[in-house]
Amino acid sequence: MKPESLAALVALATEPWGLDELELHSRLAVAGVTDPASALRAIALAGLAREERRRWVPTPLGHEALREAHLLLASSQDPSPSPPGMEECPSVPWLTQVQTHWVEAVSLNYAVDAARLARLLPAPLVPEIHRGTAWVQVLMSSLRDMRPQGVSPLLGVCFYQVSYRAAVRYRNARGEWRRGGYFVRSETNDPVMRRVGNALDEFRFHEFGEAHMVMAREGELLTVAADPEAAFPGGRLVGVFDTRPQTHPPQGSVWTGLEDLHEPLVECYDALGVSGDFVYVLTIDRAPWNARFCTPVELYCEYFEEGPLAPGARLDSVLHLTECAYRWRPLRRERHTVEP
């Protein structure tokens, strides 16, 4: 369908009683359609609209065409489409399709050695390379009212979480590359969330640990800390950040600005896990990140200074993120091709 015809159908569908020809021409002209009369003739000849009592309305075929156009538009804008062969496999659908809000969060963006990161990844996942290096983000966030969709926020759970998300990709059975994030480490301060997460297939992409955590604000300064339980050593994290928004990345960053790192590190909606011949994909539908560069005043991150990605890990930049709503889609999976 041509854009002019679609515009005419949309204009008619927004009015329950339809539009007369002059009203329709006027609306299409405002929308930038240069020949409204031709657009109306096209949808009439195609059986998508008809005139009733001197007003034009969509036909049932026209409504069907609008639904198909909506599905096509939604699919074209989907950041995580399902290719042929991908199937839904939620373990407990009503429980795992949850929604929540980030109150605020920090993203510590580390450039790491690709060979070291590769040793932490299950096949077929491999590091995704940007600016000549691999990347792991430490995302520490304060989450509010996590609950199954449709449940009152009063029954939600509020907690802290810190996740170490590696930028990765894999080749599926159809030979196509797909990108996402793999959690090489993750902790929460809520023991119930930890037990639930570790019991569900939806969280097969990592094992939750447990840690004492705090996020405290004093003016523009945000203090974060995570002290894991003895059973999960190596994840001590202490940071103080000046959250006054910066318009430029810090000196020494490989990124030229927020738009430059947007696709590699921000536009990541899929958490990936591997089991047998399948890659499992847990997709987050979220509002846009309100991300700004911020300045670390003090920072110690044990995982990168003494852990499996040391030496060689380098803090590139820090992002501060404010309020952001998100929800999970049902878990999906697809067969993979293991890289030689």
Rank of each mutant, 00 (worst) to 15 (best):
C324Y: 00
H248M: 14
L71R: 12
F241Y: 07
L261F: 11
V106Y: 04
V254D: 15
A167S: 13
P60T: 00
G234A: 07
D242R: 03
H101G: 07
R169M: 10
L108C: 11
R236P: 04
R67T: 11
R67G: 07
G257V: 12
A46I: 00
H206Y: 10
E23H: 04
T188K: 04
Y300W: 06
Y269L: 10
V103N: 14
E87P: 01
V196R: 00
G32F: 15
A231K: 06
S91A: 09
Y170H: 09
G234Y: 04
S141E: 14
V297C: 11
R335F: 06
G18C: 11
E68M: 10
G209Q: 05
A13Q: 10
G47E: 01
S107N: 13
D20T: 04
E259V: 05
L125I: 01
Q246P: 02
R131W: 09
E21F: 01
V318C: 09
R236H: 11
G239L: 09
E15T: 08
H101F: 09
A211E: 05
G175E: 08
A7S: 15
G156H: 06
W102F: 12
V238F: 05
T96Q: 12
S141C: 12
W102R: 09
A291I: 09
S80G: 12
V98M: 13
G235I: 04
E51K: 13
V112L: 15
G276A: 06
E64P: 00
C268M: 13
F159L: 14
T34Y: 02
G175M: 08
W177A: 10
A115Q: 11
A166I: 03
R244S: 09
L125K: 02
A37I: 00
P127T: 02
S107F: 15
L108T: 01
P245R: 05
T337D: 12
W177H: 07
V92I: 15
G257P: 11
S152V: 10
S141G: 14
H248N: 10
G235F: 08
T59E: 06
H336I: 05
P81G: 09
A29V: 08
